[in-house]
Computed example of a mutant assay.
Amino acid sequence: MTLTQPTTLTPIEARVLGTLMEKARTVPDSYPLSLNSLLLGCNQKSSRDPVMDLSEADVASALENLMALSLMRTNTSGRVARYEHNFQRGIGVPEQSAVLLGLLMLRGPQTAAELRLNTERWYKFADISSVEGFLEELQDRSLDKGGPLVIKLARAPGAREQRWAHLLCGPVDEAQLAQSGSARGTDGAPGALARIEQLEAEVAQLRATVQLLCTELGVSATAP
């Protein structure tokens, strides 16, 4: 079954689905996932934006809804039920597009360059242009196939590149995302500008301290 109508997920459903997609590629030996493993993956602190603190009930409810949308399946062959995604077939996109959407669900809006870097363990894109090509296809997706699945955001103040966001949870608030993007800094790292300013202030303070010590010792601050 391939969905031809717009699919609107909750943030929790997107996190559960993205986690299943990630673990299928990064830890195939332990995939499909048990409910406990899936919960840990959803709540992990790294490679997640935003970080969540979901309960087992939250994940179980999301799994029910995703199963109704034919976006995941249950494997009950063992003693413990295990879960696997059916995203690519359920949404009706090629592998490369599924990878990009999975990363956007897990890590939030990213530039094409960030996506190419972050997808290394999922799929190796030849270059940034190929990433942009699949993103543009997702943006131009026809209504008979369910409509666009990503949007290219306006350039955030101080940013060098525009970021992309997924539309699987509905329309995005570009104003809010642009504001959060400005805090990421020009290199795309969260809080980069604030961190740079802090380091510059610390360096200036250290220089002043060194100059004071050199003055008291009667030596030149530029001496080798």
Rank of each mutant, 00 (worst) to 15 (best):
212 L>K: 15
185 G>V: 07
22 E>T: 10
34 S>L: 14
76 T>H: 05
56 E>I: 12
106 L>M: 07
110 Q>K: 14
83 Y>F: 03
161 E>C: 01
120 E>R: 15
96 Q>E: 12
156 A>F: 04
195 R>G: 02
60 A>C: 11
117 L>D: 14
209 T>Q: 13
86 N>D: 05
217 L>A: 15
148 P>N: 01
109 P>V: 00
61 S>G: 03
47 S>D: 10
61 S>I: 10
25 R>I: 03
203 V>M: 13
208 A>Y: 05
199 L>T: 13
174 E>K: 00
152 K>A: 06
142 S>K: 09
167 L>H: 08
70 S>G: 10
55 S>P: 04
114 E>Q: 15
183 A>S: 10
28 P>W: 07
47 S>W: 14
151 I>Q: 03
104 L>M: 07
176 Q>S: 04
54 L>C: 07
137 E>K: 15
6 P>K: 08
90 G>V: 00
3 L>E: 15
160 R>M: 06
25 R>M: 00
181 G>D: 04
44 Q>I: 08
72 M>K: 02
149 L>T: 06
161 E>I: 09
91 I>L: 12
96 Q>G: 12
11 P>R: 11
91 I>G: 05
18 G>Q: 01
141 R>Y: 07
212 L>P: 00
162 Q>V: 07
146 G>Q: 13
208 A>N: 14
113 A>C: 00
39 L>W: 04
62 A>D: 05
121 R>A: 15
43 N>W: 09
38 L>Q: 01
63 L>K: 08
136 E>K: 15
9 L>S: 08
84 E>T: 09
21 M>R: 10
59 V>N: 00
117 L>T: 11
74 T>A: 12
194 A>T: 12
135 L>I: 12
89 R>I: 10
133 G>D: 10
97 S>E: 11
189 A>Y: 11
78 G>D: 14
80 V>K: 11
118 N>P: 04
203 V>R: 08
128 I>F: 00
153 L>N: 12
156 A>S: 13
124 K>M: 08
139 Q>A: 11
192 A>L: 00
135 L>C: 09
52 M>K: 06
15 R>I: 13
156 A>C: 02
77 S>N: 13
26 T>I: 11
220 S>D: 14
49 D>N: 12
115 L>C: 06
145 K>L: 14
19 T>H: 06
178 A>R: 13
193 L>C: 03
131 V>I: 04
27 V>A: 09
187 D>T: 06
99 V>F: 00
76 T>S: 13
201 A>L: 12
17 L>D: 03
145 K>M: 12
140 D>R: 05
51 V>D: 01
110 Q>T: 00
218 G>P: 13
202 E>L: 10
205 Q>H: 13
76 T>K: 12
220 S>W: 09
129 S>M: 08
144 D>S: 12
63 L>G: 05
28 P>Q: 05
171 P>E: 06
142 S>N: 05
